[in-house]
C-alpha cells in the first residue's frame, strides 16, 4: 500500500506530472522574460505559458474535415504522457526514482516518441502546412540525432571504462560514476561533448533559431497549423516540459557529481542549473539569431555539432 502511494506520488507529484509542469512553465516563462529583457522590453509575466495553456483550454476544439479524429486528439496526450515518463527515468542528481529500469538509449527513443506523436498529430490533421511542418520536424530530428548519439556513446564509454563490460548505457551508472570521480563537465576531454549537447538541447525542443517545424511566419505554425483548443494547449505545455527535461538530462549526464545529499535540495540545485542552461542554450540564441533554413540546420548539426561530439568520443576512446 505504501509502495503504491509512493508510486502515485512519484508519478503525479515529484518528479512526475506536477513538478515537471511547474518547472517547465516557469522555465518557459523565464525564457520569454529573458529574451524580452535582452531586447530591452518588459516582457510577459513569468506565468505567461500557464495562462496560454489555460486560455487554450477555454477554447473550442475544431476537428477539420480531413483530419483523422482519434489520432488527432490522442497524439497530444500520448506525447505528453511519454515525456512525463522520461522525467521519471532521469535521475535528479542523487534522487532517482525509476532510473534503473530504463537507460540512455531508451530515453533517446522516448524523446523520439514525443516528437513522433507530434508528427502523427500533424499528419492526422490533414493540413498541407502541417505536412510541410512534419517534414521539417523530421529533418530536425535526423539532424540532432547524430550528435546526440555520439554524446551518449562518449559519456557511456567515459563512465563505463572501469566496469567489466567497458561501457555503460545506464544513466544511473553514469550518475554514480560522477559522484565518485567528479562531474563529466570537469573532465577536459568531455567538454566538446558537453558543448555538443548544449547545441542539441534547443533543436530537440524546437527553440527559436531551430524552430523550423513551427515557423509561424512561413508555414502557419507548421505541425500545429490545425490544432485549436485544449490539444493545442497540451502541445504547448509539452514543449515547456521538454525544456525542463532536456535540462535535467544534461545535468544528469554532465553535472551528476554535485550532490548535496538531500533530495529536496538536489531538486532545487537542478532547477537552478536548468535556469542557467535555459539562459545559455535557449534565451541567448533566441534573442541573437534569426531562424535557420532547413538544410542549414541539417548541415550545422552533422558537421559542427557532430564534429564536437566526435572529438570527445575519440578522446575518450583513447583513454584521455
Amino acid at each position: 500500500m505504501t509502495n503504491l502511494l509512493w508510486t502515485m506520488f512519484h508519478v503525479l507529484v515529484f518528479p512526475g506530472v506536477l513538478f515537471c509542469v511547474v518547472i517547465g512553465v516557469l522555465l518557459a516563462g523565464l525564457d520569454r522574460k529573458l529574451v524580452a529583457r535582452m531586447q530591452n522590453r518588459v516582457g510577459p509575466p513569468l506565468l505567461q505559458p500557464w495562462y496560454d495553456f489555460l486560455k487554450c483550454c477555454g477554447k473550442e476544439t475544431i476537428i477539420p474535415r480531413h483530419a483523422r479524429r482519434s489520432l488527432f486528439l490522442a497524439a497530444p496526450v500520448l506525447g505528453f504522457a511519454a515525456l512525463i515518463t522520461v522525467a521519471l527515468f532521469v535521475p535528479v542528481l542523487s534522487c532517482s526514482t525509476y532510473s534503473t529500469s530504463a537507460d540512455l538509449v531508451v530515453i533517446l527513443y522516448l524523446l523520439t516518441v514525443v516528437g513522433v506523436s507530434m508528427i502523427v498529430g500533424a499528419a492526422a490533421s490533414g493540413s498541407p502546412f502541417a505536412g510541410v511542418g512534419l517534414s521539417r520536424e523530421m529533418v530536425a530530428m535526423i539532424s540532432y540525432e547524430l550528435p546526440f548519439v555520439l554524446v551518449i556513446l562518449a559519456v557511456g564509454r567515459m563512465a563505463g571504462a572501469t566496469t567489466p563490460l567497458g561501457v555503460t548505457f545506464s544513466l544511473q551508472a553514469i550518475v554514480d560514476w560522477q559522484a565518485a570521480n567528479g562531474s563529466m563537465l570537469f573532465h577536459w576531454s568531455m567538454i566538446p561533448a558537453a558543448l555538443a549537447m548544449l547545441f542539441v538541447i534547443p533543436c530537440e525542443i524546437g527553440m527559436h533559431p531551430f524552430d523550423i517545424a513551427e515557423a509561424e511566419t512561413e508555414i502557419c505554425e507548421g505541425t500545429l497549423a490545425e490544432y485549436s483548443g485544449p490539444p493545442a494547449g497540451l502541445f504547448r505545455l509539452t514543449h515547456c516540459v521538454k525544456m525542463y527535461i532536456m535540462c535535467a538530462l544534461f545535468c544528469a549526464m554532465f553535472l551528476g557529481g554535485i550532490s548535496t545529499g538531500y533530495a529536496a535540495l538536489d531538486a532545487l540545485v537542478v532547477v537552478v542549473l536548468s535556469v542557467v542552461i535555459t539562459f545559455v542554450t535557449m534565451s541567448v540564441p533566441h534573442a541573437v539569431c534569426a531562424r535557420f533554413k532547413v538544410e542549414q540546420v541539417f548541415k550545422f548539426y552533422w558537421t559542427v555539432v557532430a564534429g564536437l561530439a566526435l572529438i570527445s568520443l575519440i578522446l575518450v576512446w583513447l583513454g584521455l
Binding site: V77, I84, V106, T163, S170
Partner: peptide, 18 residues
C-alpha cells in the same frame, strides 16, 4: 546488459500518466 529496459513498467507509467 550494460543498461536496462523494462517495457511493462514503462507502459504502466505511461498508462497512469495518461
Amino acid at each position: 546488459l550494460s543498461g536496462a529496459w523494462q517495457p511493462v513498467m514503462w507502459l504502466l507509467l505511461l498508462v497512469s500518466v495518461t
